[in-house]
């Protein structure tokens, strides 16, 4: 099961994901990102520090929004990915397509580049 929470802090839209994202629960992550896009958010941070598992369905959610993010000049940063989850991103080479940093402060700083 997955739990998704959102929070706004200094112009940044935070989405925290807890638990497991699979073919059944990826819809919740998708909805959270869609809501952020609809609200016109330009800086989105996804906190994955309590994510224990992600399958292709969850990874597909991030990939499917990349084109839209580029179009609307929205920046997405992920942080807190543990080693087991990170290897899944690595198998597909997603670290080249997504901004992935280690902690919340680095994620906030990623918008200052």
């Amino acid at each position: 099961m997955a739990e998704i929470a959102t929070e706004k802090y200094e112009g940044i839209h935070f989405i925290s994901v807890k638990g497991e994202i699979d073919a059944g629960s990826s819809i919740y992550l998708d909805n959270a990102l869609k809501e952020a896009i609809e609200e016109g958010e330009k800086k989105i941070v996804v906190n994955l520090s309590e994510l224990d598992y992600i399958s292709s369905a969850g990874l597909g959610v991030f990939i499917s929004h990349l084109d839209e993010f580029q179009l609307h000049k929205t920046k997405l940063t992920l942080f807190g990915i543990n080693d087991t989850v990170k290897q899944v991103f690595d198998i597909l080479g997603l670290e080249k397509l997504l901004t992935i940093v280690s902690d919340r402060q680095e994620a906030i700083d990623s918008f200052n580049d």
Binding site: D30, I63, I91, G93, L97
Partner: peptide
């Protein structure tokens, strides 16, 4: 391809790629 998935905004297609690589 990853480029195709991004441009078509598709969510599916990565799973079997993972299976083949693992």
């Amino acid at each position: 391809s990853m480029e195709e998935l991004i441009s078509t905004r598709r969510q599916g297609g990565l799973g079997l790629m993972l299976v083949k690589r693992i």
